[in-house]
Simulated scan of single mutants.
Amino acid sequence: MTVALAAVAAALLVPAIATPAAAAEDSCATTGAEGWLKFSWSGKYRIDPLKLMVEDQLGDGHHVAVRLVTNRADGTIHHWGWHHNYEGVDIMQVWNTYASDSAGITKAEIQVARMEGSTIMNLCNSGKIANPNW
């Protein structure tokens, strides 16, 4: 009977220890641009894999861009670099990447912008997605 109870206890503990990374996704749209992110939390300090996508939705001669924005454990905000789409209207560009920050990542979101050169014409933010590892 003790062996049977130990086997049941072991069966219950394994799923609790071997939980998969938490997947998340969100999007936002602003005039002329729509963007998406899909990712998995890989602990307190890393998002991997991370997929960023942006589409130009207005044939106005301006380009669109997407970037990751994360909150750190100390409360500061990290604005990651812009990924620009110069391909034109109705063309989606996708970047498969990751994010790692030794200061921790407690929340993640994207910003999507319609741009003229490096000037932001209009912008949206997706919802902030909390890291369940914190």
Rank of each mutant, 00 (worst) to 15 (best):
A10N: 07
D56Q: 08
K128G: 13
S100C: 03
R114D: 12
A130Q: 11
V94A: 04
G117P: 02
A9G: 02
G35S: 09
E116G: 05
V54Y: 04
M53S: 15
H78T: 10
V112M: 04
K107E: 11
W82H: 06
T106A: 05
A33T: 09
D60A: 05
W134H: 09
A6N: 14
G117F: 03
P49A: 09
C124Q: 06
S27A: 14
W82N: 06
A16C: 10
I91E: 05
A33L: 04
H78I: 00
G127I: 04
L123V: 03
W82D: 05
W36P: 00
T2E: 14
D26C: 08
H84K: 13
T97P: 09
N96S: 11
E55R: 15
K128V: 02
T2C: 11
N96R: 12
S42V: 01
D90R: 15
L68K: 05
Y98W: 14
M53D: 03
I17A: 14
A16V: 13
W80R: 08
N125I: 00
N131S: 05
A22S: 11
S40N: 15
G81H: 13
G35E: 03
E109Y: 07
D101I: 00
A65M: 02
P49M: 11
N133Y: 12
A6C: 11
L37D: 00
P15R: 10
G43E: 02
A23C: 06
I129P: 00
Y98M: 13
E109C: 07
V64G: 01
R67S: 02
R67A: 08
S42Q: 08
E87Y: 13
A7V: 12
G43K: 05
N122K: 12
S118C: 02
W134K: 04
T76W: 04
T19G: 11
D26N: 12
L5V: 07
D90V: 07
L68S: 08
M92N: 01
L50G: 01
Y45F: 07
D56E: 03
K51Y: 11
M53Q: 14
K107L: 04
L52C: 02
A6Q: 15
Q93S: 10
V3K: 15
R114E: 13
T30P: 05
A33M: 05
G81A: 12
V66E: 00
A6T: 07
Y45P: 00
V94Q: 09
A99Q: 07
G117W: 02
P20S: 09
S118I: 03
V64H: 12
N71S: 14
V112F: 03
N85H: 03
G61Y: 08
T97K: 08
D101P: 01
E55K: 15
L37V: 13
S40H: 12
A130H: 11
V8S: 08
A4C: 01
K44F: 02
A65C: 04
A11W: 13
I105A: 03
A65E: 04
S118Y: 11
H63P: 00
N96H: 13
Q57K: 15
E34F: 02
Y86H: 14
E34V: 10
T2N: 13
V14R: 10
E109F: 05
S27V: 01
S42P: 00
I110N: 01
N122H: 10
